[in-house]
């Protein structure tokens, strides 16, 4: 029973297009690729504080979605992402904050992040509405 549900879960993990990049076929599946995969998804998720869940920023300052501060990363072309990040990393591209992040990542991580974000679906994401603080709050 346990084995069945585990297999089912793995199939789910590997066939979804929402959270994870697609694999070519089941033969490519191994625990190694699964680990590689989860490495990038957790790193990419830590970008969400400034760039939104799966790169769907709810507040950006650029002329369009994919430019300027807090840019939308979801669906950004991988070549564009890579060029910008490598520019931030080597200092050839002017940055306010991003050089402090890009310099800490490896070229390989930047390349994988580029693919990851290019595969994320652009969805309309909006800021959460605030509320009146209740008297019962501590």
């Amino acid at each position: 029973m346990k084995k069945l549900s585990l297999n089912r879960f793995l199939i789910l993990l590997l066939t979804t297009s929402v959270c994870l990049p697609k694999f070519g076929n089941a033969a490519e599946v191994s625990s190694f690729t699964a680990v590689q995969n989860t490495h990038i998804r957790a790193l990419a998720a830590s970008c969400a504080a400034c760039h939104g869940t799966f790169g769907n920023s709810v507040a950006s300052s650029g002329a369009d979605d994919n430019s300027g501060a807090n840019a939308v990363l979801a669906g950004m072309k991988s070549a564009e992402f890579k060029e910008k990040m490598l520019g931030f990393k080597d200092g050839s591209r002017k940055a306010t904050v991003m050089h402090h992040h890009a310099k800490g990542l490896t070229v390989n991580e930047i390349e994988q992040l580029a693919v990851h974000f290019s595969e994320q679906k652009r969805v309309v994401a909006t800021p959460i509405k605030s509320q009146t603080l209740k008297a019962s709050h501590e």
């Binding site: 504080a49 507040a59 800021p127």
Partner: peptide, 12 residues
């Protein structure tokens, strides 16, 4: 940027 950060981390 900081205001954008707040909106994004709250939504996330």
């Amino acid at each position: 940027y900081a205001q954008n950060w707040a909106q994004n981390i709250w939504a996330d």
